[in-house]
Simulated assay, not measured.
Amino acid sequence: MTTPRTRMPAAARRTSILVAAAEVFGQRGYAAATTDAIAQLAGISQAYVIRSFGSKEALFIATAEHVLDLVTDAFRTAIAEADDTRRIEPLLGAAYVRLAADRGALVTLLHLFTLGQDPRIGPIARAGFLRILAILREEAGLSMERATAFLGNGMLVSTILGLQLPAESEDPATAELLEATFRENTPLVRELFGGRDLDG
């Protein structure tokens, strides 16, 4: 007698599609990604992906919103863990580095912020960026000067990780750049990314 297969709940299946989509968008970029590749990675039919989201554009928007939720959740967790206001920024930085270890999430976020001119995606990118700023200002209690410095460093962090520079950390100039950028989180970056291909 065969055991009946357990049907995955709709919410869990949607999340699995978004995780697969982030990986494919991260590997191929928005233009080259296909709903077929996303469906294959998620282990479902392309028809189900289209039925669930309607189009590649709508799927990218949902994926970007999912990644933005991951960022805001990670930041809120870091803020809750901070027992000293001086520790907030290093904890926020470590939370972002851990999130960026998922290359799909990192590159999806980078793609999102380069599509500001797109009539449908641009408003979501701007709203997501401003939501992160609001968390830094209102929940983390950072001044605008500290918040903008943190965001500026975050863009540098994203660029460094997107370029896979930690894999070149034996180069003296690269090692110095990593230390200057990640500061107290440099050991975490070396643990998560150092000496390996970030696609691995």
Score class of each variant (00 low, 15 high):
Gly162Arg: 09
Ala42His: 08
Leu165Trp: 02
Ile38Val: 13
Ser52Leu: 06
Glu145Pro: 01
Leu59Ser: 11
Pro187Phe: 03
Ala101Asp: 13
Arg126Val: 10
Val189Glu: 09
Ala10Lys: 15
Ala94Asp: 14
Ile61His: 00
Leu109Cys: 07
Ala47Pro: 10
Thr148Arg: 10
Gly141Phe: 05
Thr15Leu: 08
Pro9Ile: 06
Leu91Trp: 01
Ala42Asn: 10
Pro123Gly: 05
Thr72Glu: 14
Ser45Cys: 04
Arg76Asp: 13
Pro9Ser: 07
Glu65Arg: 15
Tyr30Arg: 12
Arg5Met: 05
Ala80Tyr: 01
Gly200Asp: 15
Thr108Leu: 02
His66Ala: 08
Ser158His: 06
Glu139Asp: 12
Arg146Trp: 03
Gly116Gln: 00
Thr15Ala: 09
Ile88Ser: 08
Pro90Leu: 11
Arg28Pro: 00
Ala134Ile: 05
Leu165Gln: 01
Gly162Met: 02
Gly195Arg: 03
Ala62Tyr: 02
Gln117Ser: 14
Ala37Gln: 11
Gly200Ser: 13
Gln27Arg: 15
Glu145Met: 06
Leu18Asn: 02
Val19Ile: 15
Ala175Ser: 14
Ala101Cys: 11
Ile61Gln: 03
Gly43Leu: 02
Pro172Asp: 02
Glu191Ala: 04
Asp84Lys: 02
Gln40Tyr: 08
Ala10His: 15
Ile124Asn: 05
Ala33Tyr: 05
Asp197His: 09
Leu192Arg: 06
Ala10Glu: 15
Arg196Cys: 04
Met155Phe: 13
Gly29Glu: 06
Thr114Met: 04
Thr108Gly: 07
Val71Glu: 08
Ala58Met: 07
Leu136Tyr: 00
Ala12Ser: 12
Phe150Ile: 09
Glu138Lys: 13
Ala134Glu: 10
Gly200Arg: 12
Ile61Ser: 01
Leu99Lys: 07
Phe182Thr: 03
Arg103Tyr: 00
Gly162Glu: 03
His111Tyr: 05
Phe150Tyr: 12
Ala58Cys: 09
Leu68Tyr: 07
Asp197Val: 02
Val157Pro: 04
Ser143Trp: 02
Ala32Val: 03
Ser143Pro: 08
Leu70Trp: 06
Gln46Leu: 00
Gly152Ile: 06
Asp171Pro: 05
Ile160Glu: 01
Ala22Gly: 09
Ala167Glu: 11
Glu89Met: 07
Leu112Lys: 06
Arg13His: 05
Ala22Thr: 09
Phe25Ala: 00
Ile44Ala: 06
Thr6Ser: 13
Arg5Asn: 07
Leu41Arg: 11
Leu188Asp: 06
Arg76Met: 09
Arg86Tyr: 07
Ala167Gly: 15
Glu89His: 06
Gly194Gln: 07
Arg120Lys: 13
Ala82Lys: 08
Ala47Phe: 08
Ala100Ser: 07
Met8Val: 15
Gly93His: 11
Ala20His: 03
Thr186Ala: 12
Gln164Thr: 12
Tyr48Thr: 15
Ala100Leu: 03
Met1Pro: 12
Ile124Val: 15
Leu177Asn: 09
Gly54Cys: 10
His111Pro: 00
Ile121Phe: 03
Leu109Asn: 11
Glu23Trp: 00
Ile88Gly: 04
Thr3Trp: 08
Met8Ala: 10
Ile121Asp: 05
Asp171Ala: 12
Gly54Thr: 13
Gly116Glu: 01
Ala11Lys: 13
Leu68Met: 09
Leu112Ser: 09
Arg86Lys: 14
Val19Thr: 14
Arg137Pro: 05
Ala82Gln: 03
Met144Thr: 13
Ala37Met: 10
Glu57Ser: 10
Arg98Val: 06
Ser52Ile: 00
Leu112Arg: 07
Phe150Met: 14
